[in-house]
Simulated scan of single mutants.
Amino acid sequence: MKIIIDRARKEWAYSLFVVLFMFRINFLTLNSIIFGKGMVYQGLKYAMYFGILILFLISFGEKFRIIHKDVLILYSIVGLMTLATCIVDKSTIEVIKGENLINGIFISGLSGFLLYRCVENYDLLYNVFKKVGYLVISYATVIVLTTQIGTAYMGFSYAILVFILLELYDGLFEKNMFSLAFGIIGTVVNILGGTRGSILCIATFLLIFLLFSKRYKIVLFVSILGFTFFLCYDKILALFTELASTLGVESRIIDALSGLNMNSIAYTNGRTSITDVSLELIKSNPLGYGFLGERAQLNDAIYWFTTNGYAHNIFLELILQFGVIIGTVIIIFMIYKIIRFLIYYDYREKNMALAIVFLCYCVNLFVSRSYTTTFEFWAFWGILNGLRRRE
């Protein structure tokens, strides 16, 4: 008997596949906080991958029968750049092996561009994203209330961040109070168990809402609320501290805002050293070290890096890789494309909504992570390239 799945179901399966494929590593991060690496963790891991495989098989024939030319060009260029750097600098090969960058870049990273170029129904994808977000934020809330996150705070923070931003978007721009409630809960959970980079992303989103929503009463209300926050900062911080203590949560962010020990908000966690070394490397070779070639240089220059050295700033990373001239051109081009997108941005279109969410998420690339392996970074450019093709 032949099983027939109509196109609408295939589109639904593909939307769920896109969301779960992006979330798969973060799902394992959340589970490892609760279950460690034991049998339960392994069972959930294989269940996740099996579900993703089934969704992929359902939607494969419909979505991947044609690969867009720009996707092939992107993969080819990145592949050739990687190969060229490995030929010129053999130490890059060891970095790629040590960090598993073939998987990190070509599967986890660039797949964002591939998958979002294949999306046709952004309304459906948006709704699937929103519903999965309810589950993710609920799960994350349980983790914060029942488990000490410890050293996993960074993975936890970024695991739930994109869903928090989407729920806030749906709540503020689309006036969905249910989504707004989840967005607010997610924001509190992220503050309790997150990083300074994630708070920066959320603040950027709120700024975009103030600039583009045209809901002037809310803008005025938020402005007054923000002003009140700064006036009552100490009291609000004390309230959050008391809340965390009552819940038994050890919050790195609250410690940072309180200025406790090495968790002070001004503590750069080694980023000053990384920036200084990056600038010295640029001075030593203004022509650049090639795609991924800067990692071996940073590993040699910073003693506490092993094979995981990257600039922790997307602009420095691009200039280190492509040199001062070409790197600056790439940066200017990116800024131009983002400004152009914001000029024509329409919050009612779901593809633009997702692009805004991913753009805000990528603000953390100025202080953390690498653009080369960030799914959301490439997804943003996939959506923008799709918009250009439609035009």
Rank of each mutant, 00 (worst) to 15 (best):
K2V: 04
W12I: 12
L16I: 08
L16R: 10
I25C: 03
N26D: 15
L28A: 04
I34T: 08
G38R: 08
Y41D: 01
Y49M: 12
F50D: 02
G51S: 05
G51N: 04
G51R: 00
I54T: 15
S59N: 07
E62V: 04
E62G: 05
L72A: 08
Y75C: 11
Y75V: 06
G79H: 01
A84F: 01
C86R: 02
D89A: 02
E94T: 15
E94L: 08
G98M: 00
E99K: 14
I102C: 07
F106I: 06
G112D: 09
C118E: 10
N121D: 15
L125C: 13
G133V: 00
L135S: 13
S138A: 15
A140T: 07
V142C: 06
T146K: 07
T147F: 05
G150D: 03
A152G: 02
F156I: 06
S157P: 09
V162R: 04
G171R: 06
K175A: 11
N176I: 06
M177N: 07
M177T: 08
V188W: 02
V188G: 13
V189F: 07
T195W: 00
G197Y: 00
I199Q: 10
I199V: 06
A203Q: 05
T204K: 05
F212S: 11
K217W: 01
L220E: 12
I224P: 02
T241V: 07
T246C: 10
T246L: 11
A256N: 10
I265F: 10
Y267M: 14
N269S: 05
S273E: 13
S278L: 03
K283E: 09
P286K: 13
L287V: 13
Y289M: 06
F291D: 11
E294L: 03
L298E: 07
D300N: 15
A301I: 06
A311W: 00
N313L: 03
F315L: 09
E317G: 03
L318V: 06
Q321G: 11
Q321K: 03
V329D: 09
I330M: 10
I331F: 01
I335Q: 09
I335Y: 01
K337P: 03
Y345P: 02
Y347G: 01
E349W: 11
M352I: 02
A353K: 08
C362L: 00
N364F: 00
F366I: 06
F366R: 03
V367E: 11
S370A: 10
L384K: 12
E391P: 04
